[in-house]
Amino acid sequence: MSVDSIYVHKMWNDNELSKMVPGGIPFQMLSDAGGKVGAIYGIYDEGEGVNTRGRFIIDPDGVIQAFEVLAPPVGRNVMENLRQIQAFQYVREKKGTEALPSGWKPGKASLKPGPDLVGKVWEVWKTDMAFD
């Protein structure tokens, strides 16, 4: 979603993005004239008149589980975005019985918070597990 019109979205997709992504952009390109939506999400830059790089992960109940905002010159990390979606889908499936420590990705161990784990995380989780 950007402040550009749907006509500019079409030109950008058809003339440039479709040359990077076969078939063009597979999701909806949304238009936010005047940054009204960006403003309620807290990421609209009034001075520049543009939305900054805000990214929100919204669960099936319409609840925000994560967000990230970058200033315009730096692009996002798609893999980190996917990791966060997988992580929030995992904890939702487990209905709050498991938590995911730093550096978790699918296949890595989760934590089962409870009285027995208090003060014992160091036994089951090592700092090198935060890294790939």
Binding site: S2, S5, M11, W12, N13, G38, Y41, I58, P60
Partner: peptide, 30 residues
């Protein structure tokens, strides 16, 4: 919000996606 997708102009409402995971991305400009 008005939207462009696969050759069509549509109108999209966030609440239509209840029941699904949504990633909402903002960016400065085309």
């Amino acid at each position: 919000a008005p939207a462009y997708s696969k050759g069509k102009f549509t109108s999209v409402q966030l609440s239509e996606f209840l029941g699904k995971w949504v990633v909402l991305c903002f960016y400065p400009g085309d």
